[in-house]
Nucleic acid binder design. Structure first.
Lengths: 116, 116
DNA sequence: CTGATCTACAACCATTTGGTTGTACTTTAC
DNA sequence: GTAAAGTACAACCAAATGGTTGTAGATCAG
């Protein structure tokens, strides 16, 4: 299933989905093993429907997938999408690192000028 | 999962701030060099006040800082906060990688059982 | 078959978000 | 000193978010 998620709105959805502690906790649970929505809901002080909505947000952001097993719906994490978000932030760090290098170079050049 | 409330809300703010294409673009601009709010606003098809609000959201998330220079307010990126977000996502990847290792180990053990 | 379990989804509500316009305060330029 | 530039902030609005309750469809257990 190739989903075009390299769009800006795809990234919007990823970060928006991760901007909630409950949803991040759900991700951390389903990244190691599948869990039914009901078993996930047991951990939070809110209605089942609320947790169901959180899962829906994660699904829309492609951070989890659901797979039916009988009457249960098993939720599991999608590492590829998390990797995409991580890569984006690392790209920012890379840009910053290059700026830092550039500044270092300027400083070194200044030092040379002073010495000359 | 034991969570530090103040840290969690900090992470909420970081991801929420990054969940908007305009704000991500602002971050990518101010990460290499400082820019005044007005000069940032020139790039977007919205009012100055709207851009000012976006900068405010980024500031609250500690993704940028503002420094006054005369009548201008210079906005610059804070790499440490971006690094925090990147580290969190990398931690998820790490957890996932460990699960993958664990599964490999189980498969190997199963193979041994079959062989015995 | 019947009842319990698991999920889906609609309707509703309060709050937040992302935008607008308008006003006012500093600082700079002439 | 006056005008322009840069910013701050309030008031307002539509839409999205995060929660609720209620209803209904499948599926499983006895």
């Amino acid at each position: 299933m190739v989903v075009d998620q390299s769009t800006e709105t795809g990234i919007d959805r990823i970060f928006q989905a991760l901007a909630d502690a409950t949803r991040r906790d759900i991700v951390s649970r389903v990244i190691t093993a599948s869990h039914s929505v009901t078993s996930l809901a047991e951990h939070y002080d809110m209605s089942f429907a609320a947790v169901q909505k959180h899962v829906q947000v994660l699904e829309r952001a492609l951070l989890v997938t659901k797979e039916r097993r009988g009457r249960e719906q098993l939720v599991r994490g999608r590492i590829d999408t998390i990797g995409r978000a991580a890569a984006l932030l690392q790209a920012y760090e890379q840009i910053w690192a290059q700026r830092a290098l550039r500044i270092d170079k300027i400083l070194v050049e200044d030092t040379h000028k002073e010495k000359s």
